[in-house]
Amino acid sequence: MTGPAPVAGRGRSDAAMDPVINPHIPTSEVLRGLLAEAPADCVSFGWLLDKLHKRSFGIVLLLLALIGLAPGTSPVVGLLLTIPAIQMILARASPAFPRIIASRRFSTQRLVRLVDRAVPVLRPMETVIRPRWKTPFDATTRVVGLVVLALTSVFFVPIPLSNIVPAVTIMLIALAYLEEDGVLLALSLAAAAAVLFVATFTIWQSVEAVRFMAS
């Protein structure tokens, strides 16, 4: 994923005197920074999106997928994931949720618990995951949105624990997108293709079994 183009007309000496522009900040540090800025009592989903800026798509996918690991959350999380996924396909600058969702307030302690669950998992992974094999940002955003949208369908499969594999896959995709790691992204997309193949085959087998029993 490529960064901004250099400003025309600036000499080498000027560039050398400048500090590093927009250094890459690990996702775990971004999440910790959210807690430092969060109000003491409660926050809204809209506040969260405003604070994340360009990281909003990736972190929203990551947090929703993390929530999606919990039993009984599959339909709600699957539905919520379709919103940023479609907007990524449309190359929107940041996710926009309906007002009834964006204005939803929840206690800051819930955000703290969610971040406390995510950070210990992210930090060891960030020692290995790093920016490499950079890909065009717009194209990557559209591809990630398309794959996540396809994976959301698995959340509605009425099979116990069927939410875990797509949720973990979306977490890996989101992390690769956030950390600009093309290697992890390629592996995650391959895993997504395998998940979709197995889910499609399982559904087809179930339908065939029902048809056989009904005949």
Rank of each mutant, 00 (worst) to 15 (best):
A194T: 14
T169P: 01
T200M: 11
T200Q: 09
V198S: 09
V157S: 08
S206P: 14
F197R: 06
G182N: 01
L185S: 01
V198E: 14
A190S: 13
P166L: 06
A193C: 07
L196K: 00
F201A: 13
N163K: 02
I159L: 09
L184E: 05
A191N: 08
I159T: 08
A191R: 02
P160I: 03
L189Y: 07
A192R: 00
L184C: 12
L161D: 15
F201H: 15
V157C: 03
A193F: 12
E179L: 09
V198M: 02
Y177I: 06
V207S: 14
W204Y: 13
G182V: 00
L189R: 00
S188K: 00
L189S: 12
I164H: 05
L161Y: 14
D181Y: 04
V195A: 02
A199M: 01
L161F: 15
P166W: 02
A193V: 07
L187S: 05
V198L: 06
A176D: 11
T202D: 08
N163M: 03
A193N: 04
I173H: 05
A199Q: 05
A190R: 00
I159G: 06
L161P: 12
V168L: 12
I159H: 07
V198D: 07
L184V: 13
P158K: 06
Q205L: 11
Q205P: 02
E180V: 13
I159W: 13
V198K: 03
T202L: 12
L196Y: 04
V165Q: 05
L187P: 03
G182I: 00
A174G: 03
L187Y: 07
F201G: 11
L189E: 10
S206W: 15
V168Q: 04
I173S: 03
L178W: 02
F197N: 09
A174F: 05
L175Q: 07
V165E: 15
L196V: 01
A174L: 02
E180A: 14
L189M: 12
I164E: 09
A176N: 05
V207L: 03
A192P: 10
E179N: 15
A194V: 12
F201I: 15
V183M: 13
M171N: 08
I164N: 02
L172I: 10
I170C: 02
I203G: 08
G182E: 14
V168D: 13
I203V: 12
D181R: 02
G182S: 04
A176S: 08
L175K: 01
Q205E: 15
V195N: 01
P160W: 01
L172G: 12
A199T: 08
I203K: 01
L184K: 00
L189A: 07
T200W: 14
Y177V: 01
L185T: 00
V168C: 07
M171F: 11
L189P: 06
L187D: 03
E180S: 14
Q205T: 09
L185F: 00
A194C: 09
A167G: 10
S188I: 00
A186F: 13
A190I: 09
L189C: 11
V183H: 14
Y177N: 01
D181C: 01
